[in-house]
């Protein structure tokens, strides 16, 4: 074992942070870049489903809240790409990997937003599930990622409260609005459970990620935690979660619940979800439409500094 290796192993064992200039195994570096990039891509693609509703928000207050939320997601993407760059990655290269379909983003964003209730349900369930996944990442062994996650989790908790508050208001509105909320919950519940990834038995990367303390809880542990926390919220809201198997298990002191359609998750991950093509096409279009602007900025900066572009 080299000195670098010994220091790395000790850092992990003592629950301390690995910093960008420290020695780290190539596999750790690759895994961190992939994980952080996929998270960054998820923030950027995740702007689209809700972003579609900004221009149609039904009150100016809701418009401001939604616009600020989507802006926060761009900000999260920006710090995450920066965290990946501390490991030697390049933002432009990561973006190319995204738009060429060589790197993934969270499958949840391949589902459509049919009504304004979806804005609330995404805040409550999708951001809620994201927080369950991300809170443990505030203790990730890689320093820049862990620190970025603390700020991101704080902002996600605003978003979740704002989403839940929208739903509370809509449930106090017209019967059509209550139906809109229930319909939205019916559509987003199962995809939200899928956000924790496949069952532990089918999750190939979990063991190594746990050993490196990149990941702190298994997929199934986090999923159970999410269900246990969400059921009372659904009751307070007055909506039904669309799972006939959902019931309290006094012996386990947890809710029992049904299994999502894992074939559907596999299809969505492999690119065959409802909106995979549209989401990537929009990102690609923005990238292409912006190319002349970025080239102009580079040419101008080069001329200013006296260095040819």
């Amino acid at each position: 074992m080299t000195t670098g290796e010994a220091v790395f192993t000790e850092t992990i064992e003592r629950d301390q942070r690995v910093e960008p200039a420290d020695w780290m195994p190539d596999g750790y570096r690759r895994t961190m870049i992939r994980q952080i990039a996929q998270h960054a891509h998820s923030e950027i693609i995740g702007m689209q489903p809700e972003g579609e509703w900004i221009t149609r928000a039904p009150t100016l207050r809701r418009k401001a809240i939604l616009l600020a939320k989507v802006q926060d997601e761009a900000g999260h993407g920006l710090y995450l790409y920066s965290a990946a760059e501390t490991l030697g990655a390049d933002r432009g290269d990561l973006t190319r990997r995204l738009i060429e379909g060589r790197q993934k983003y969270s499958s949840i964003f391949n589902y459509p937003t049919h009504s304004f209730a979806d804005v609330g349900v995404i805040g409550w369930l999708v951001d809620g599930a994201a927080i369950c996944n991300q809170v443990p990442l505030c203790r990730s062994s890689f320093g820049p990622y862990a620190r970025a996650m603390i700020r991101i989790c704080k902002e996600e908790s605003f978003h979740q409260r704002q989403g839940y508050e929208l739903l509370l208001n809509m449930m106090s509105g017209t019967p059509a609005q209550r139906d809109m909320v229930q319909d939205s919950v019916n559509r987003w519940w199962w995809p939200s459970l899928m956000m924790f990834g496949p069952p532990d038995a089918d999750s190939p990367n979990t063991a190594q990620s746990m050993a490196w303390k990149i990941k702190r809880h298994t997929n199934d542990e986090l999923r159970q935690r999410f269900v246990d926390m969400t059921v009372p919220q659904a009751e307070a809201l007055g909506v039904t979660l669309p799972d006939p198997a959902l019931r309290w298990n006094a012996e386990r002191e947890h809710y029992d619940f049904g299994q999502p359609d894992w074939d559907e998750l596999r299809r969505v991950i492999s690119g065959d979800g409802p909106l995979n093509r549209q989401r990537l096409a929009r990102r690609r279009q923005a990238d292409e439409d912006g190319a002349w602007v970025r080239e102009a900025a580079a040419a101008h900066a080069a001329r200013r500094s006296g260095v040819p572009a």
Binding site: M47, G51, L67, Q71, R282, D289, G290
Partner: peptide, 21 residues
Amino acid sequence: QEWVTRAPELEDELALANIAL
């Protein structure tokens, strides 16, 4: 607001949303 998710660069996504807000 119509520029959200189609800005030329991520920094401009933030700036344009900020100005819109």
